[in-house]
Write a protein that binds this DNA or RNA. Sequence first.
DNA 1: TTACTTGCAAATGGTTTGCAAAGGG
DNA 2: CCCTTTGCAAACCATTTGCAAGTAA
Lengths: 140, 140
Amino acid sequence: MYSNLLKEKNIKITKNRILLLETIEKLNKVFNVDDIYESLKNNNHKINISTIYRNVNTFYENDILDKITEVNGIIYYQLQKETHLHYLICTQCNQIIPLKECPLEEIENNLSKKTGYTIESHNLEFRGICPKCNKNKKDI
Amino acid sequence: MYSNLLKEKNIKITKNRILLLETIEKLNKVFNVDDIYESLKNNNHKINISTIYRNVNTFYENDILDKITEVNGIIYYQLQKETHLHYLICTQCNQIIPLKECPLEEIENNLSKKTGYTIESHNLEFRGICPKCNKNKKDI
DNA sequence: TTACTTGCAAATGGTTTGCAAAGGG
DNA sequence: CCCTTTGCAAACCATTTGCAAGTAA
């Protein structure tokens, strides 16, 4: 029940917000605003795209979503999980798949000491060509 | 002499391109198109901003520049160096400082085996608040 | 000469915003 | 009821593009 989550965060409960969170859950992947928009359209729901933008921002500001990366001017998000993840991004089709490993905590601590930064987050992305795109390339 | 570099890469040598590369060298940091534009303006040079965009792309496509990251819809570049770098980005002022450590080659190899991806690059960013912005925050 | 580059102005496209109407508590 | 959210249309802004004139080789 997402209404509990919203109440917890002091965000007013609306049909749109519930529907948006359910859609994001169903997507079950790193997504952008257009992914939500298309998914809603396919299920015969109409939410204005600016409403989606506003709420994705609200969710982000309230730690419900993580901002994963920007690729070609498009911002990608994911439902915030307890598990800390990194990503592998195909430079051909922009498929984004999450990884498990994170050997960076120690490096992060040292970095904070050396630079005086308060480290808030880190972002590790690998870019390459996925097996499918590799195959397509050879076919050309 | 940047004309040699351009010749090497089969890019036509123009005054603008030389000037752009010199400006980038003088900047000596991770930069965006506007950084170049402002630096030129301060030195009483006029190059149209679309020319800068076009040439930054040309340099990028010819491995003269690396694309470092996108922050708030703005693309950041750096002169391609032999040394592989990662970055620390202030979430308040967007200052970007390069790091030295890269413990990721081994992880990258394993990843390639597991996923079938041809890994082309990786990108490790730490985000946090720099000492200066930390101070400003307290002053408010 | 001949193709590539440049400046200018307009278009593009993801994202944001102002405003009036609708909805939540 | 008051304040927030929503839909709509327009604005925003970094970046791209079409075109005519200029320039490198």
